[in-house]
Computed example of a mutant assay.
Amino acid sequence: MTMMMRGLLAAVLALAPLVALAQGDGAGQSMTMVTFNLHHDREDWPARRQVILRELQALKPDAIALQEVIQKPHVRNQAAWLARKLGYDYQFVSTDPPGRFKRYGNALLTRRPVLSRNDHLLAPLGDYRTVAHLRIDVDGRPVNVYATHLNERSDEAGSRIRSEQVADLLTFIAQTAADAPVVVAGDFNALVDAGDLSELRNHYGDSYGSVHVNNELAQVSTLNRHYYEAPSRIDHIFFQQDRLLAREAKILFDQPYADGRWASDHYGVWTRLQFAPATGNAGATTP
């Protein structure tokens, strides 16, 4: 190899990390997240969990938000089972106290180191809704991830309750996020542009909608069309737009794994979020 060729090779190798950084492909430059409603233990959970596990093992997301997580006699906590199989840490939150024979709630799973953890019962307390919070370390970058599941009613009362829950959720985020970027995922039981979620959208972007900007977005559903006739995208991953950029997003579990058998009555959502360049004074978004 001539001296000139060696010089060219050295220059290319020196530039490679900078090119990767510019493309957002460098280590620690992005994180991935999944949200998925497990449909608790209905239908054939032992078969469904294997399908769900295989997909999550293939994706290896940094964090996973789960809704309708159940534990009861003869059914191990679903989040705990998945976390053990994946080798992830997990946070389960329920309004059912520890020791009760059946507990039902939400969970967060992560393969990253956990810096802090919190949970909260959302107002109004009579609706039995919760939010889980983990601050995780993504290659030296702290990130707050939250998982929740809002009221399911489709009438005006449901809309009012969801609005109250969103307000309480934003307050909880303001109290726990510190100066790290925020990702909020879950089953919101509302379309992304619904008035119930307007305060949330004032602070955070819709990852799927940010990536897939087209006239057919209204036809995208996270409710399984095998169970629900009309398309409805109600499972979302929201992100702090001044700190993160949505780069990729896709729907998961939208095909049967066997004849007439599905992973859930919901589809899942996966997204890749890239860390935005530092602006010098980027504080966490607060309401």
Rank of each mutant, 00 (worst) to 15 (best):
A65Q: 04
A107W: 01
Q23P: 00
R84C: 01
D25G: 13
G209N: 03
Q78C: 09
V93L: 10
G158N: 03
A10T: 12
D206W: 03
K72I: 04
F36H: 13
A58R: 15
R49D: 02
R225Y: 00
L21W: 11
F238V: 10
V138R: 06
S159N: 14
G99E: 09
W45V: 08
V131R: 07
R48L: 05
S154V: 05
P46M: 10
E43T: 07
V211F: 05
A178G: 12
Y204T: 06
R111H: 07
V114R: 09
H149P: 00
R6A: 15
A177G: 06
Y146L: 08
A246H: 02
A178Q: 13
E248C: 04
A263P: 01
A14S: 07
P231G: 10
N215D: 15
A14W: 01
D62A: 15
G126C: 00
A218C: 02
R76D: 11
G158D: 03
Y257W: 12
A284T: 08
G280W: 01
L108K: 12
D127G: 00
A178T: 09
D137L: 07
V93C: 13
R42P: 00
G283S: 11
P73T: 12
R112L: 14
V19G: 11
A14T: 04
D155R: 10
H266V: 12
T222R: 12
S264A: 09
S221Q: 06
Y208K: 06
P277N: 13
G186A: 08
L197H: 11
A132I: 03
A14G: 13
G105N: 05
L59I: 15
N189M: 07
L13I: 15
R48D: 06
R49I: 11
H39L: 13
D187V: 08
L273C: 10
A58P: 00
E55G: 03
G140C: 03
L197R: 12
T32I: 04
H212C: 04
D196L: 05
R153H: 04
R141C: 01
R100C: 02
Q50I: 01
M1V: 08
E164G: 12
I161R: 08
L252V: 11
L66N: 12
R129I: 07
Y228R: 13
E55F: 02
M33G: 15
D235P: 11
M3A: 15
F92E: 10
L59M: 14
E68R: 06
S163D: 01
D196A: 15
M1G: 15
M5T: 14
D254V: 10
H39S: 09
G87V: 10
L66K: 13
S264P: 00
V269W: 02
T176D: 01
L200Y: 06
A123M: 05
